[in-house]
Amino acid sequence: MDQKTLLSTIHSACARGVQLIPPNILCASIGSIGLKDPFTMPMTATLQDCLDAMQKYKVGSLLVCDAEGKLKGIFTERDFVMKVMGKVSNLAAALVTDYMTKDPVREQPEASLAFALSVMSHGGFRHVPIVDHEDIPIGIVSVKDVVDYFVQKMLDGIFDSIDIDV
């Protein structure tokens, strides 16, 4: 399909009242998009521990919590590239607390998706930890999770609008 045909298809769908992005999608709460469980590390963890965990679980961010489980910091791939690589020779001797982003912006699961996106955009970060009212992490949301959710809702919206008759 060439560019012109694609545009014509978009216009045609919109003219038929297809809502390519369902209304109120941005009002949905972050908790409702299917929160991923966070990977947490204690404050005594070293950079080597964090690197091992990131490689083992194939994740790009780790939440650092105190003994009570409360969120104290976040350590991401970006922190690793900007603060550690080429600068720290002995990863096993360096504590994550010295390299993590301390006291990161966090949200509660009832906050809206629009607000979470706004926070990520203005703050320039890709992950937002989700905590409960005791500041204990219950999940983490990334820009990718939000985009995946939007695409899924767009597809769901298409099928919800019709009654298949075959």
Binding site: T9, I10, A13, R16, L20
Partner: peptide, 8 residues
């Protein structure tokens, strides 16, 4: 309309 959206 659904077909058009799926095409997209």
């Amino acid at each position: 309309a659904a077909l058009a959206a799926l095409e997209l």
